[in-house]
């Protein structure tokens, strides 16, 4: 079971990468007591039948692990969303891509903590492969709103190879500074 909301995001983005996506757009929208995520990819997509089965913990496509009979990523997410009064939707078109949206009610007593968002996004950008990843983060509070957007392309251009420890540490520092600005706004609201 995943311990933080960020763990679900990492897991879902990894699904997009394994579905051969070339472009993944992640949105993270925080508003009052709600944290809403969406992950949209242009990967291989799923048929209606597979889409339905992907929500069953005792289903896996069998490609990677021939003898295994479980696939827990999406079922873990659905379980948590249902237990905290959040929302979940999954739509997909074979050959075009998949869109997954999920939100959590932060005020619910069973809602897991957010986790380390800068470190999570560092992992999302640092995942090997030539896929573009765009993250759009927004925060709305009673004292106003703030947002930032980061793309893997611009990070590659500024930092170079995103597999090197030095680059990744700088990337986290950059993402941390974006989140710190949002934290300050939240604390003043």
């Amino acid at each position: 079971m995943h311990g933080t909301l960020c763990d679900f995001l990492s897991d879902i983005v990894q699904n997009s990468i394994e579905a051969d996506a070339k472009r993944i757009v992640v949105t993270i929208a925080e508003r009052k007591d709600t944290m809403a995520f969406s992950v949209q990819d242009d990967g291989k997509g799923m048929t209606g039948e597979v889409l339905r089965k992907a929500q069953d913990p005792f289903y896996t496509d069998g490609v990677k692990h021939k003898r295994r009979k479980v696939g827990l990523g999406i079922p873990f997410l659905i379980q948590t969303v249902e237990s905290v009064g959040g929302s979940f939707s999954l739509s997909s078109t074979p050959g075009c891509g998949t869109r997954l949206e999920f939100s959590f009610n932060l005020g619910h007593i069973d809602c897991p903590p957010l986790g380390n968002l800068p470190a999570t996004l560092m992992g999302v950008f640092g995942y090997p492969g030539d896929q573009e990843v765009v993250v759009q983060r927004t925060l709305e509070t009673s004292a106003g709103g703030d947002s930032y957007q980061v793309s893997k392309t611009e990070m590659l251009e500024v930092l170079g190879d995103l597999s090197q420890s030095g680059s990744l540490n700088l990337l986290r520092e950059y993402l941390q500074s974006q989140e710190t600005a949002l934290d300050e706004l939240r604390n003043h609201a």
Binding site: A119, Y127, P128, G166
Partner: peptide
């Protein structure tokens, strides 16, 4: 992952490749 990067940073090691897989 975060612990590896912080530890490498502590020792000022910049050129270890840290990647992820499934």
């Amino acid at each position: 992952l975060d612990a590896f990067l912080k530890e490498l940073d502590t020792h000022h090691i910049e050129n270890v490749s840290v990647t992820q897989t499934g």
